[in-house]
Nucleic acid binder design. Structure first.
Length: 570
RNA sequence: GGCGCGGUAGCUCAGUUGGUUAGAGCGAUCGACUCAUAAUCGAUAGGUCGGGAGUUCAAGUCUCCCCCACGCCA
């Protein structure tokens, strides 16, 4: 039995995520976790909310709530939506957890002991009216280059010129509009990533099976220009993990917190601690410490391409620098972007379909199937309502749903709601079994390799094989002359439904549970081989005819949604 | 401006280390069937693989130049 540690990039606490975020990490991670569990492997699947930083503080202020309360509420909202999509996290944690506080401070202490942290004094803009330091992008003013009056402190959106906040004419706070700003000297900690460059480079080189997308991004950051830069890991904020050197105070750093960039990935580890706490103190170190049993763990991370640098360089730098035997990632699966109707999904602009809205209009399986089977794996991919309608109607309703319907209804009308016996399998059935064995092997291989689209393609082909079989065996014809043959053919058909339920669970768990319960199967075991899997339902076994598994998306509904989701979310 | 990823049938996409007639699904057309959610099954339709040049016995698959879209960075 293998052991799989699986993490999905942790979504930011601020607001509800859109479908592009979902397919960019959580959903494929769930597919893989469900698959590995189905194969009988031990899985720890973790995700959490990323809760610190200025955007969270501002969102809380906007909502008129204390930031800790706001985060607790949003975490609950995201957890509920994740559940709605069937995301099977073993634990959905929070980067603001006590476990992450302790661990983040621990890592900082280790890094400091290893002389990998240096103190830097720098100038930052402080807003008296807001009572806070302002990140560059929260300072607005007139661009010295083009006179655009809404240029941001990091860049002018109008002329694209890169700016320093002090370049702005008449600078003001983007939060309050206040012009009562001053430049203050403040001290921060920097992680000396540059000192770890060679170690990181060697580590990346050892990953021969990583996607080109992943290694090329990492290599770029390592070697571009002056190479890997040191990065600030602290901020002047209230909401965050207080800067401490392990258990001890950090003189000079009072009132400062660690930057999200530093504490968020550490939550992957801390989350296992939270999981342990929620599960009677289960041993979490056997998943994370190679000196405590994590040697045989295979660790896979899922994320969007924008997150690759943090996972290939930032987080590994933290771990390598600590000098402690933490488990490092084995495989890193990154995704491109899903576009929405010719443009981008956008959280800030409210463009596209958001997870809560998606669940309001259709069951999660519809989304899971379409998103996974059209997942932006090798390049960006495109969501349009027409494509979505086509894919769902054809694959789920026509190919799979209708198969279940035609078999169960035919059986009920001719033989009743028990599995008929009939003759033994003949040549056509033997050929089908051989075909299925080959297809299941290919499907499994694709799933093992995390080839999401190809897995979906193969699964669909397995569903089609059932329709082909029915069409060529034609029990509705054979029953007129030879009832035993028709009975055998329908017995095969019913067993195919059971096989489909087992194989399809990682993609469409709800529908598979419906199939399972209709067939009266106690468990859905991954098939050892097609022949035995197709003998699971013996003659005389009772079943029921389920409601249609998937309703088709009508043109009217599609047009309605197209309208409803064409603008921006209010 | 630099860099990155792409530009393959109407649409969405596959195409391992270069090797016989470039693939899948959808859509379209025709046919079969009638158990089923007007579902299914089969067949056909034919794209100079963005453009140009080059390397090679052989290039969608390598090199160079150009064009287009997207993204990242300073």
């Amino acid at each position: 039995m293998q052991r799989h540690l699986i993490t999905s990039a942790i979504p930011y606490i601020n607001g509800i995520k859109h479908l592009g975020n979902l397919i960019g990490s959580q959903l494929p991670a769930d597919l893989y976790a469900r698959y590995q569990r189905a194969r009988g492997n031990e899985v720890l699947f973790l995700c959490a909310t990323d809760e610190h930083g200025t955007p969270a503080e501002l969102a809380a202020a906007k909502a008129g709530k204390p930031v800790d309360k706001y985060c607790a509420e949003m975490h609950a909202v995201q957890a509920k939506i994740a559940e709605g999509f069937g995301l099977s996290f073993d634990h959905f944690g929070r980067s603001s957890s006590p476990q992450n506080h302790a661990l983040t401070q621990h890592f900082a202490g280790r890094l400091a002991d290893a002389d990998l942290i240096r103190e830097v004094s720098e100038k930052q803009v402080y807003s008296n009216a807001d009572g806070r330091y302002l990140p560059d992008r929260y300072i607005e003013g007139t661009c010295p280059n083009c006179s655009y009056d809404k240029a941001r402190g990091d860049q002018c959106e109008n002329c694209t010129k890169q700016l320093d906040p002090t370049d702005l004419i008449d600078p003001r706070s983007a939060i309050s509009g206040s012009t009562d700003l001053e430049v203050r000297e403040t001290k921060h900690l920097y992680l000396r990533q540059s000192a770890l460059k060679d170690d990181l480079d060697a580590w990346i080189d050892s990953k021969k099976d990583w996607p080109v997308l992943t290694t090329s991004i990492a290599k770029k950051w390592l070697h571009d220009g002056d190479g890997l830069q040191d990065r600030g890991i602290t901020r002047d904020l209230y909401w965050g993990i207080p800067v401490r050197r392990g258990d001890a105070d950090w003189p000079g750093m009072e009132g400062k917190v660690f930057y999200v960039w530093f504490d968020a990935p550490i939550e992957y580890i801390a989350c296992a601690g939270e999981w342990s706490e929620a599960n009677d103190g289960a041993d979490w170190e056997r998943w994370w410490r190679t000196d405590k049993g994590a040697d045989d763990v295979r660790y896979t991370q899922f994320m969007g391409k924008d997150n690759v640098p943090f996972h290939t360089l930032g987080f590994p730098a933290t771990i390598l620098g600590s000098g402690e035997p933490w488990k490092m990632v084995d495989h890193l699966k990154s995704f491109n972007y899903l576009n929405y109707d010719g443009g981008q999904f956008s959280t800030s602009q409210g463009r596209g379909v958001f997870m809560d809205q998606a669940l309001e209009i259709l069951p999660s399986d519809y989304w899971r199937w379409w998103l996974l089977s059209n997942c932006p794996e090798t390049s960006d991919s495109e969501f349009t309502w027409e494509l979505f309608q086509q894919g769902v109607n054809k694959d789920l309703a026509d190919v799979l749903g209708n198969f279940v319907s035609r078999v169960t209804k035919f059986c009920r009308s001719k033989f009743g709601e028990t599995v008929p016996e009939g003759t033994v399998f003949g040549a056509r059935e033997t050929a089908l079994i051989a075909d299925l064995d080959a297809r299941i092997a290919r499907y499994s291989a694709m799933m093992d390799a995390m080839e999401v689209r190809k897995s979906a393609q193969e699964l669909r082909a397995i569903w089609v094989a059932g329709n082909e079989y029915l069409q060529s065996s034609a029990p509705w014809t054979s029953i007129k002359e030879d009832e035993d043959t028709a009975a055998m053919q329908i017995r095969m058909g019913l067993n195919l439904i059971g096989l489909y339920a087992a194989l399809s669970t990682p993609f469409i768990p709800e529908a598979c549970a419906t199939m399972q319960s209709a067939l009266g199967l106690e468990t859905l075991d991954w098939p050892q081989d097609a022949a035995s899997a197709l003998a699971l339902l013996p003659p005389g076994h009772a079943f029921s005819v389920p409601d249609n598994l998937f309703a088709k998306i009508t043109d009217e509904a599609r047009e309605d949604w197209q309208q409803r989701f064409s603008g921006v979310r209010s």
